[in-house]
Simulated assay, not measured.
Amino acid sequence: MSDTLRRTRLDTAPKVERPRLYKVILVNDDYTPRQFVVTILKAEFRLSEDQAGRVMITAHQKGSCVVSVYPQDVAETKATRATEAGRAKGHPLTFTTEPEA
């Protein structure tokens, strides 16, 4: 294969960009029971008991906490499902998403 042909093939190879990542953020509220928040974090985000407890306490102390980072569609789905799980039990539990910097 000639260098020209090889160079042409390499130059025309498609450039694939990684999808933009989004943070899922737990927003603190003063009404949702702490253990319920931990349960949701474990179920929806597959966090361990210890990890979920740390995320919950950080959100409680600082007002919010990043739970995890995913591609946009996954982040939005997880945030929506976790928020809806809280609403289904009558809690104002809220998860939001925002682009990673």
Rank of each mutant, 00 (worst) to 15 (best):
A79T: 02
S48D: 00
R9Q: 11
S68D: 13
Y22E: 00
Y70M: 04
A52C: 10
A85Q: 15
V74I: 15
R6N: 09
R20N: 12
E76D: 09
D3Y: 06
P19I: 00
D73S: 14
L5F: 06
E17S: 13
A43L: 14
D30V: 01
E49K: 09
V55T: 12
A82D: 04
R87M: 10
D3R: 09
Q61W: 02
T83H: 05
A13I: 10
Y31V: 15
K78N: 03
S64F: 09
S48P: 02
M56I: 08
G86K: 10
V37H: 04
G53R: 05
C65E: 13
Q35E: 15
Q72W: 00
I57S: 10
V27M: 12
T12L: 12
K62P: 03
V67I: 09
V69E: 05
K89T: 09
I25S: 05
E44A: 10
T83W: 03
P19G: 04
R9A: 04
H60S: 07
T8C: 03
L26D: 03
K15F: 12
A13F: 08
L47I: 02
T39N: 15
L10G: 11
E76V: 02
T39F: 14
R54F: 10
G86T: 09
K23V: 00
D3V: 06
A85Y: 15
K89W: 10
T4Y: 08
G53E: 08
S64L: 09
Q51F: 05
R87V: 08
Q35Y: 08
M56H: 03
D3G: 08
K62M: 14
R81G: 01
A13M: 11
R34E: 03
F36E: 08
Q61D: 15
L10R: 14
A52N: 05
P19Q: 05
V69M: 06
A85H: 14
F45W: 04
T80M: 13
H60L: 06
A13C: 07
D3K: 08
L5K: 08
T8R: 14
V66T: 15
K89G: 02
D29I: 05
T12I: 06
T80K: 15
T77M: 13
